[in-house]
Design a protein around this nucleic acid. Structure first.
Lengths: 196, 196, 196, 196
DNA sequence: TATGAATGAGCCTTCATTCAT
DNA sequence: CATGAATGAAGGCTCATTCAT
């Protein structure tokens, strides 16, 4: 049911989706939704939770591994993220599109915090990559924003049976952000991280 | 007035903004808006037009220059884009956030076409960069999506008096997408476009 | 079950009581009520019937006794009434509070008639008291209204283990309405302020 | 408008009155009510305020007069009360019938306090009458309840062009509660059935 | 131009009632 | 007997829009 709601919200937008739209998608009468969910608000909350909870949890596990090289860790994190986003495309679309809904009101506090937590994890990994000298941008904050932008935007164009698999997409994003091993070819880091 | 509306729409979201909210922001009585604008719909249309028209026009001029190296052209285009987006932050936020509103109905056809046109221009430039061997990704379509994502996302975090200027941000994005002159160090394109 | 319903109706009011409230009070599932009662309406009907039927019956018996002095009869009637009201406090509260519900629609016709019948009995007794010269008010109709008011109002403040017993309350009301034996004369004021 | 609402509430009961009923009575479209009043709740609040505020104020003035004999004061208070109640019959009916609505929730706190205040005033006057030896009941608390009951009940049967004027009704109620001057003595039964 | 009272459609939500189990 | 999921009709309320002034 949450999945179905996510689909409708993703398609029409939260505000423009009526309870009847939802009920129709779930194949229920208008009022029937309220047997399962307390309100339209709560439905959005559930969608966001279903999206963020597992993502955050797995991201934590992934970044908790201490001995992995930061660059590999970033790659793995991006792969997880893209994979999760594309697997829960509707959830992700809703989560992004309804930003201004989620940003206001106490109901969404937990969700806002989950988002913050996740972004913090990404930031920390990027910071470590930066420190390891393999970040393709001198400014790690900008690299973070760029990554957030490109991954989030993925769900806007990704199609399940499209040309690129989630893994390939993640590889591409990682490739953009990382430079090759500095020992292999000296100076490449400076070159690609400098403005053209 | 359109600017004020953009600010309110950006803050509250189109659907959650009432005509009274708008009127208050414009310092007008509720009904007074209808002397200047036919409807709430049309106001959103105006906002998107004000954003996309000049951007599209200048992007056309920029890409019409034939003899410039593609990489420089891409850099210039990104700079224009980021600059425009940050200068019209509210417009841009509305344009993105209300995607699902704009995507439906005949009223927004022109806007949808403008967006397509703009993305087409970007795509063509990227294609040329790719052909010139300076694209940091083997897959030019993915590069396009990544670029769209990061630039669009910029308005979500950009602050007028922030650490980075629009030009610096654009430099960073361009740096991510481009590789150094191939004549300096052969094969660098392959390296950074391969999965790590 | 009717008793439990009366309690809930008395507390929340008929309209603001949901079937679920009732079910909970009866310790039954929501739909289970419909095995015993046809509808919410009917439940209210039952409550009112349980209240008015025995009261009316006993009032008829009481007033049918021909040879008793009218003043004693009134006293007895008031005692019966107060006793009944306080013993079925919830029923009585419902019966009064939901006056505007009961007053409309054919379902409650019988109840309305029962009320009329009862008030008619009281009226007749008061009339006889008046004729006997022992009514404390020249206007017997006003005395009737006053009596109705005070007795009905009793259930709003009466508490089972309160300072006054139903009998004492009834004594007080009777004392207010009756004057001492005219033949005894003198000092009737003192007499009537004491319980009869 | 508040008057019209009071009429409809009095007739149908608060819960069974729809916004449309009200709008119809005010000759307005359904939503038009919300230009004047924030909610249905608030309308009830206004009705009760309009009733209780002036009554309480005048009752305070009346009972503030120190040198008047308590019995006369009680008579005056009852006269004020009956007069006010009959002049605002609909308000009064609503105020009583919707007791269970008013009794719950924070919105009605002020109203509940106003009622308490008023009843306290009546109680104090009765107490003084009792002390002066002119109360017709030994139990002053019971006298208070009886008075509350009969006056409140008045609006249930009073008709503007009926047989009895508000003043006559008040005279009757006062007569029931008071005994004649103990020093004058004799024939007090006849006296107490006449206006004091 | 500008106002703001008024409209009326539509939304979220509640709830009495039904019915398959 | 009893459950509780499901229905569907209303109800309170909001809000874009209109229009007399």
């Amino acid at each position: 049911m949450v999945r179905a709601a996510a689909r409708v919200f993703a398609e029409r937008g939260y505000d423009q989706t009526t309870i009847k739209d939802l009920a129709e998608a779930i194949e229920l009468a208008a009022g029937g939704i309220y047997h399962y969910v307390g309100s339209k608000d709560q439905l959005l909350e559930l969608i966001c939770d279903q999206l963020m909870h597992p993502l955050l949890e797995r991201a934590r596990e992934l970044t908790a591994v201490a001995d992995e090289p930061p660059a590999e860790q970033l790659h793995a994190l991006v792969a997880l993220w893209v994979s999760h986003a594309t697997q829960h495309r509707d959830h992700m679309l809703v989560f992004q599109q309804e930003r201004h809904v989620i940003e206001r009101g106490p109901r969404w506090r937990r969700i806002r915090e989950d988002r913050k937590q996740f972004e913090l994890l990404v930031e920390q990994v990027i910071e470590r990559v930066h420190a390891s000298g393999r970040l393709a941008l001198a400014d790690s904050r900008l690299a973070l924003s760029a990554l957030l932008g490109m991954v989030n935007h993925t769900v806007q164009w990704y199609r399940p049976r499209g040309r690129l698999s989630p893994a390939q997409i993640a590889d591409g994003y990682a490739a953009l952000l990382l430079v090759a091993q500095p020992d292999v070819a000296a100076g490449s880091a400076e070159l690609s991280s400098a403005p053209v």
